[in-house]
């Protein structure tokens, strides 16, 4: 599960969803892997404004990844001015958001404390029946 995905996930419990503490989920005992994919500058450029940047910073920090820029990078920052090629910022973002993946571990809700397992790169949000 790539790091980007964490920006689109919350706790699955109805009682948590309205609560700001249920987002983002906090990785725990995470095993990371790097899965190489082709860089898609337009995809990243268009996803950036859709991301909750504070949540993204929290999650990458908790995963022990390199710091993200303080603010959402602008479209201009993604292109190298002289060459017109992808900038280092864009390459770093691609590596961090699209290639860095949680292979296994847990995702913890800070509101209710429930832990969702991640196995073989896939998070499981099925709730035990007493929690539904």
């Amino acid at each position: 599960m790539k790091v980007l995905t964490l920006n689109f996930l919350t706790c699955a419990r109805k009682t948590c969803k309205q609560n700001p503490a249920a987002f983002p989920l906090h990785p725990k005992e995470a095993e990371l892997e790097q899965i190489e994919t082709d860089i898609n500058p337009l995809f990243i450029q268009n996803m950036l404004p859709r991301l909750d940047w504070e949540a993204m910073k929290t999650v990458t920090n908790e995963l022990g990844l390199p710091n993200l820029p303080l603010e959402t990078p602008t479209a201009e920052a993604l292109v190298d001015e002289s060459s017109g090629e992808p900038s280092q910022t864009l390459k770093d973002l691609h590596s961090l958001l699209m290639e860095t993946s949680v292979a296994s571990g847990k995702l913890v809700c800070a509101n209710c404390g429930h832990e969702y397992a991640v196995k073989e790169g896939i998070a499981n949000f099925l709730l035990p029946s007493h929690m539904v």
């Binding site: 599960m1 995905t5 996930l9 919350t10 706790c11 699955a12 419990r13 109805k14 969702y116 896939i122 998070a123 499981n124 949000f125 099925l126 709730l127 539904v132």
Partner: peptide, 9 residues
């Protein structure tokens, strides 16, 4: 992700 339609994450 694995999830139930009635409890979406």
């Amino acid at each position: 992700a694995v999830a139930d339609i009635l409890d979406l994450p």
